[in-house]
Design a binder for these strands. Structure first.
Lengths: 348, 348
DNA sequence: CTGAAAGCGCTTACAG
DNA sequence: CTGAAAGCGCTTACAG
């Protein structure tokens, strides 16, 4: 069924059918009603490709999820709760605004070229990149060519520096520095002085912010940091296991650990338990993100909540506004985090 | 950049450029090389919509995830680990075979019309429906019109009955009846005779199979079933809480419970713990699915593993083969489940 | 207010 | 082996 057939049945021209579909104001109610009835009756849906080719938008957003999981794990992303929540929230928000979501997983640097390809193929009106802060230059270049792009968890300051003129770039994230600082302050308030760090991946903005906040806060309180207690988990389960194992085998432990995300915190807690190190009696630990799992593990994880749903919603909303040119220009938004106190931290 | 410009630069016609792109065999190597060089140099990507309009496939698969989560939860799907794993596996498999995935969340019956709409809009070449076994008739009707559709976790027998002539339908699932029967057998072997059931949603195939297997296996061993011990959690957390609460308040408990999925099992365990009922000392519990969480909760959950990745991979593979017409006809595949013994079941 | 016509960027018989 | 041309199903100036 195509618009021409609808036109014939309704006794009008294709132009008029098109005007009705596209909500032109200069179609008399009667004509409109007649056409809509036929459309309804035959369950007609305009061919999206023909519309796009004729100049309409595709109403499709590309979601590019950058996997940071272990390369050796064949199912990779597959188990990352944090990304899953984001993905669902984004799909949900987009769908409810009448947008379709084309989802892509990016495993390696060369996969970034897909972002550009998909834009060039005219498959999408805009893109959201979620994950490690890689290839920012590539993405900025694409956005400068007129493709609206939203970046989640990228360093706004860094990008703003010389890209302020960019009209198609949106940055959304959370104030992780403040969140991480609050977490460390909390441990200090509990009386801890010998605090360790489970650091995230330095190629991510959040990884760096949480790292920096840890050192700054410790310094602010004149607390020394034992190099042995700075573990590089890189947001990866296997690396975290290795690092925590190494720590345990050295014999001496900090009295508390700030972990740059929940996944690593949970991995660490598992290992501590296996080695008869009690949490929080022997060691306190605080995570970051408040993933679903955080409230379900035992002991439940004290953590800092990232407002995933708010971030996702804002990202979708602003991206759509850029696509429709209702709002333009470089935009950057940052959301507050929130401490969620549960069972893994005790007084020293 | 369009094919005509590439043609001009390469000194050939649009037709030839198109032939190169579409891998026609009758293009001499030299011509092919020349054209490919220009395409490469200018980073040309053909406009997908123009290709589709001219008769090509869109190389896009629609993924329709049916949410069964609590209606009152605004984030709904958002927290369902089981679906997330499926989604990721499907995207992963499709991407690696050169297919794009358009993802949609279906919340209510009326959302099913979107499946048809998206096909009619020519946005997708095929669709995968994942979730509760609703609206099978609607979906079968769509597939009969020539749209390849794959259904995950639908009742093959039921559909096969009078639809064997359907060329575009694929069913993939797991042998849940056998898996559930094995789980109940396991509890019986441990010496349990007073076994309860946490039943899933009866509108799902897996919900019914797991339910039926429980009753059949109990009967096979001449074990009585106490009506009070049959709880209807419907795969929903809040309903499960209510049912388990009611059971606990009645005072008498079964010595073991077969739960139709891990989510409900984990919810139940939480409640038992809150009421000082020890798992597995006071009550044994076995789940189904082996979601990520199952190995992480304490005590870790004994369960029956559904081979999510295998199912996803097979679904994508067969759907693509139907799209490309390399393999045709009604197809139905079923995968074996596997017991994963952990810590939540003890001898009676 | 509305129709005829051009055009979007491809692919593919068709003819040579 | 290859180009000119028709056609895919829309939208939108243009003219009336």
């Amino acid at each position: 069924m195509k618009s021409e057939e609808i036109a014939k049945i309704a006794g009008v021209s294709r132009s008029t059918v098109s005007r009705v579909i596209n909500n032109y104001t200069n179609v008399p109610d009667e004509t409109k009603k007649k056409v809509l009835e036929v459309i309804e009756k035959y369950n007609y849906q305009p061919n999206t490709c023909a519309r796009v080719l004729a100049g309409k938008k595709s109403d499709t957003i590309g979601l590019f999820v950058v996997s940071i999981a272990d390369a050796e794990n064949p199912n990779r992303l597959y188990k990352n709760d944090y990304f899953n929540q984001f993905t669902n929230a984004i799909v949900d928000c987009a769908n409810s605004r009448g947008y379709y979501v084309l989802i892509n997983i990016i495993y390696c640097e060369s996969d970034y070229s897909r972002v550009n390809e998909i834009f060039l193929q005219k498959r999408i009106d805009g893109g959201i990149v979620l994950g490690t802060e890689k290839e920012a230059e590539t993405l900025i270049k694409i956005s400068k060519k007129g493709c609206p792009i939203a970046l989640i968890d990228y360093d706004a300051e860094e990008i703003r520096k010389n890209k302020a003129e960019n009209e198609n770039l949106i940055l959304v994230g959370s104030r992780d520095y403040e969140g991480a600082a609050a977490a460390v302050e909390y441990l200090i308030e509990l009386g801890h002085t010998d605090i360790g760090l489970l650091a995230g991946r330095m190629t991510t903005y959040s990884g760096r912010q949480r790292y920096k906040a840890f050192f700054d806060t410790m310094k602010k309180h004149n607390l020394e940091i034992n190099d042995q207690f700075v573990l590089h988990g890189d947001f990866i389960k296997s690396k975290t296991s290795n690092e925590v194992h190494a720590l345990i085998s050295k014999g001496r432990l900090p009295s508390a650990i700030f972990s740059s995300n929940d996944d690593m915190a949970i991995t660490a807690i598992e290992l501590f338990k296996e080695n008869n190190i009690r949490v929080p009696e022997d060691i306190s630990i605080i995570g970051f993100d408040n993933i679903t799992l955080a409230s379900l593990v035992k002991p439940s994880l004290t953590t800092v909540e990232t407002p995933i749903f708010d971030i996702a919603e804002k990202t979708v909303k602003e991206l759509i506004s850029n696509i429709q040119k209702t709002g333009k220009g470089f935009k950057s938004y940052s959301y507050n985090t929130k401490m969620v106190i549960r069972e893994t931290c005790a007084k020293k």
